[in-house]
Every structure is written in C-alpha cells, then in structure tokens.
C-alpha cells in the first residue's frame, strides 16, 4: 500500500483558503491505487490534474508513476491552491508544472491530443448558480445546478486534450447523474466504467474512468 502524501506542511489556516482532503479525495487515492498497474503500463508522458487544490492527489499519482518520465501539469483557479500544490510537490519530492488558470485555459491548442492522463475532482456540490465562478475556496466545491455546471463546461474539451491512448478520471456524486455524464462522453467517443464507489455520509461517491472507444 502506498502511503498518503505528507501534508504536514499545510496548517489549519491554509485550509481556510484551500480544500482540505476529505472522503472524496481519499476515494480518489484508493481508485488510483487500484489503477496503479494500468497506469504504470500506460506510461503517460504528459499528465494533467485540473483543480489540484492541496496537491495531495497529484503527489500520490506521481508516486505511482515513479519520479519518472511523465511531465505532470496541475491547474487551479485559486492562487492559494497553486501555491499549496507547489509546496506539497516539494515536500513529497515530486516535480509538477503548476499553472494558475480556469480549468484548462491556456493549454489549447498547443497541447491538443497530448495528455495521456487527466484527472479531476470537480466542484460537484449542488449550489445556486451564483456561487459558481469564484477563485477562492468555494471554487473547490460549488457546482451549481445538479453540481454539474463546472463539470459540463469541461467535458467537451476532454476529446481535444486526450491522446489516442489517453485516460480521464473524475469524481462525481449520485446527484450529478453519473449515467447522464457517461452518455455525454459516449457521444464524444468514450467508453466509461466505474472504478470505485463509496457511501460517505450523505454523499454517494463514484470514480469514473473514460477511455477512447475502440472501433
């Protein structure tokens, strides 16, 4: 079993401004542990975490891949989160390329079809639409109607970003209508599966995995 990344450098006051790893984060880590063999065989050359927050997940994935041959990008809209990701990477001896941006803005078309691995723990909580679009800690959870507003903004880009062997992982809850998301992605040519699911309090969490459908 791989240890959870060391986050001891992040303090209570940091978590007033960035999302503190919680059940959803830990389920994501467990899913990556299950997928470790697949990911090692995939040998991604360029990866991307969207909304890296504390940097916990990227540090964990980096450990799975080994400090190897993968260029690891992280984005976050929250300046404090980008700095936390940077500190976490350093603290756990991994290198990441951190960009302060909205989802994937600034990466296309230059990096079209270049990502072998993308992962996203989106703001999936159902909130009023007005709460979507901040660049502080609310950006980590406020998902608008059905918790889908940010997710739906990203989905059309996945087909542009992923390479032919690329894989995309995303955290969702039941209220986000996972089947509907899988249908949307099927229209874009992706097969999907549920790699992990867990009941955490009132939230039913899923980790979805998408790969390009083989003809």
């Amino acid at each position: 079993m791989l240890p959870t990344p060391d986050l001891s450098h992040l303090k209570r006051q940091d978590y007033e401004h960035i999302y503190e790893p919680a059940e959803d984060t830990f389920l994501f880590l467990d899913a990556f542990e299950d997928e470790a063999l697949f990911l090692k065989e995939l040998q991604p050359k360029i990866s991307l975490e969207i909304g890296s927050g504390s940097g916990c997940v990227t540090a964990f994935v980096a450990k799975i891949l080994g400090e190897s041959n993968c260029l690891k990008f992280c984005t976050d809209i929250n300046p404090r989160a980008t700095r936390a990701t940077k500190r976490t990477a350093k603290h756990n001896q991994v290198s990441v390329e951190i960009i302060e941006t909205h989802l994937i803005s600034g990466l296309l078309p230059r990096l079209q079809g270049q990502f072998d691995l993308i992962y996203f723990n989106p703001p999936y909580v159902l909130t009023p639409s007005e709460e979507v679009g901040s660049n502080s800690v609310e950006a980590a959870w406020a998902g608008g109607i059905d918790g889908r507003e940010v997710i739906d903004e990203l989905l059309p880009y996945i087909k542009c970003l992923l390479s032919s062997i690329g894989v995309f992982y995303m955290v969702v809850i039941n209220e986000n209508k996972p089947d509907e998301i899988r249908n949307i992605m099927r229209q874009d040519g992706f097969d999907s599966s549920i790699v992990k699911t867990r009941l955490a309090g009132r939230e039913k969490l899923f980790i979805l995995k998408f790969v390009r459908a083989t003809l």
Binding site: I77, P79, I99, T101, H102, S105
Partner: peptide
Amino acid sequence: IYNIRDGIPNMLLAEHEV
C-alpha cells in the same frame, strides 16, 4: 500580459477577455 509570481504563471483572463 500574463504575470508570473512565486514561480507560478497566471493564465487567468478578465471576464471580457474570455
């Protein structure tokens, strides 16, 4: 102009530029 601070590039745009 995109600024780089603390070694981190900021690619965010203002609302009217998006």
